[in-house]
Design a protein around this nucleic acid. Structure first.
Length: 238
DNA sequence: ATGCCGGGTCCTACCCGA
């Protein structure tokens, strides 16, 4: 049986953690990795580091903030065409009411885009940092206040609207209940106290969800030297 | 409880993350 391994990782500066990403790719060998918060423009992205491992990079960069990239292993043999979206959704806590409104509007546009993909014939996955804890189980007690943009009801409603399109939350499909975090703040001993959040997600269209074999955040990476505050989330599809 | 850590940049005090 052939396997398609997808992964998403908010790397929090690719220039700071190119070596860590390279070692993780060697160990995990995904077919495709979407990265968020690369924090550089495309020419500064260390594409050669990944080409040496057999990955080709597609970069949408920005100076200082944000920025995403997609690393795909080449060569590959196309047996089933699928569409992969790598996203970095707005946090929504900065910029006051306007910043939160921007987050919600962005999520509304994402839903429209996902609805268009659902209308097409091609199976698809949306993977990335959604900056939403979908339920209370996805936020360690005390890790965030009730007014935080990541847990507010309007944010959660936008996430549910994606699921109502027929999408499957891959990690929750494999781990139906209990804490399974993908992020731990650098502050206040969040990692040693395991005060984490589940905000990185992989959503699968129905035919891909039928092929879901495994989904797991790689907690080892949070314990590395100078880690990102997010860990990679890997999803295996038959 | 925002700003304890850690990234970025107008190079160094300040913005942003979640």
């Amino acid at each position: 049986m052939s396997l398609l391994r997808l992964a998403t990782w908010n790397i929090n500066s690719i220039r700071q953690r190119a070596g860590q990403a390279r070692r993780w790719l060697e160990r995990t060998a995904p077919d495709l990795l979407v990265l968020q918060e690369i924090k550089c423009e495309a020419p500064a992205f260390p594409a050669a580091d990944f080409e040496a491992l057999g990955y080709r990079a597609a970069v949408v960069g920005q100076k200082a903030y944000n920025g995403v990239a997609l690393l795909a292993r080449v060569p590959f043999e196309v047996t089933h065409r699928i569409t992969i979206a790598g996203i970095y959704a707005p946090n929504g806590n900065s910029g006051g009411a306007a910043g939160y409104a921007y987050k919600l509007a962005w999520m509304d546009r994402l839903r429209e885009r996902a609805a268009a993909l659902a209308e097409a014939d091609t199976p698809f996955a949306i993977a990335g940092d959604f900056n939403v804890c979908p339920t209370d189980e996805d936020c360690a007690p005390g890790a965030l206040g009730p007014t935080d943009a990541l847990v507010r009801p309007e944010s959660r409603a936008r996430f549910r609207a994606l699921l109502w399109l027929g999408l499957t939350d891959a990690l929750r499909a494999m781990v139906p209940s209990g804490p399974v975090y993908t992020f731990w703040d650098y502050q206040a001993g969040a990692w040693p106290r395991d005060l984490g959040l589940r905000i990185d997600h992989v959503l699968l269209s129905p035919t891909l969800a039928e092929r879901l074999l495994a989904a797991e955040p790689d907690r080892r990476e949070r314990g590395a030297e100078q880690p990102s505050d997010h860990v990679p989330l890997t999803v295996d599809l038959a």
